[in-house]
Simulated assay, not measured.
Amino acid sequence: MTIAFVFPGQASQYVGMGKELCSHFPEAAAVFEKADTVLGFSLSRLCFEGPQEELNKTAITQPAVLTTSIACLAVIRKAKGPVPVAAAGHSLGEYSALVAAGSLSFEDAVRLVRKRGQYMQEAVPLGEGGMAAVMGLSSEEVAAVCREASTAGVVEAVNLNCPGQVVIAGDTAGLKAAGPLLKEAGAKRIIPLPVSAPFHSSLMVPAGEKLAKDLDAVAIADPSMPVVANVSADYVRTGPEVKASLLKQVYNPVRWEESVRLLAAGGIQTFIEVGPGKVLSGLIKKTCREASLYNVEDLASLEKVLALTKEVS
């Protein structure tokens, strides 16, 4: 059995994430404690108790999802669970994948995604931009509509998630103009996402410029296992490649469907989503129907993954 770990991004957050594992595993609790210390506020309290509105603010969401994912990873490792041969993460989840691969320290990663979230929010004031999932159209069809709607404002196809699901991002005017055009083109549904900025769009270039300085200040090692970069849908194998991909990722599309296909073509049969929710599992199932899918976010899901390890040992 060939396994990849995949790590979720924004829109996977929920109040209570990580709490059960922390109450049973000191290794998970230690990750949250480390995040609280590094950030200088109680991220753990926000994850465990909310409120959801605060957890949805991007400068909170990004370190919160990363911390929960790495806490789940710590538990898998302590329990001698499955060992992956490759990793990938969706948007901010790429930082979690790089921590798993030893390319970034957890402390540096949690600082970076906190700043990344702040810079992204500063690039477009709250309420002036957003994102929406478009169901039922191909990425090419969505891109064509975005080009048509761009006379009204900025709107771009930014998350190429799976067949029939593409996320768009832009300013309020661009998103408003795109809605009717997407429906005319045959979109089945358009779902606004619980995020507070138009991530991965060209509006994020100022955020990338700020993040570049922070990336220059941290040590980035060669990954210990192949990690798929969002921006290229290809493996990054050296520290310099990692740094370049994280920078471009801020203002370029997340090529998730292609990333999953790359892993599957390389022999990955089983995907384990490490962190809150099952968003990525749903996307992977639509891309690779034959894939085996698991997740780890609480005791019940952990037990299923550990049982899987015993089956193949």
Score class of each variant (00 low, 15 high):
I60P: 07
Q62A: 06
P63H: 13
P63G: 05
L66G: 13
S69A: 12
C72I: 06
L73A: 07
L73E: 03
A74D: 08
V75T: 03
I76C: 10
A79Y: 01
P82R: 08
V85F: 15
A86R: 11
A86P: 02
A87F: 00
A88C: 11
H90F: 09
E94R: 02
Y95A: 11
Y95E: 11
A97M: 08
L98E: 01
L98K: 11
A100V: 01
A100L: 05
A101P: 05
S103K: 09
S105T: 04
F106T: 08
A109N: 11
V113D: 12
K115Q: 14
Y119D: 09
Y119F: 15
M120Y: 03
Q121H: 04
P125H: 09
P125I: 12
L126V: 14
G127C: 02
G129M: 06
G129R: 02
A132F: 13
A132H: 02
A132C: 12
V134E: 11
M135P: 08
G136K: 12
S138M: 08
S138P: 09
S139C: 13
E140M: 05
E141I: 12
E141G: 15
V142S: 12
A143N: 11
A144E: 04
A144C: 05
V145R: 07
V145E: 03
C146I: 02
C146P: 11
V155D: 03
A157S: 12
A157Y: 12
V158A: 06
L160C: 04
N161E: 13
N161C: 11
P163M: 00
Q165R: 00
V166G: 05
V167A: 04
I168F: 04
A169F: 09
A169L: 01
G170W: 00
G170F: 01
D171H: 06
D171N: 14
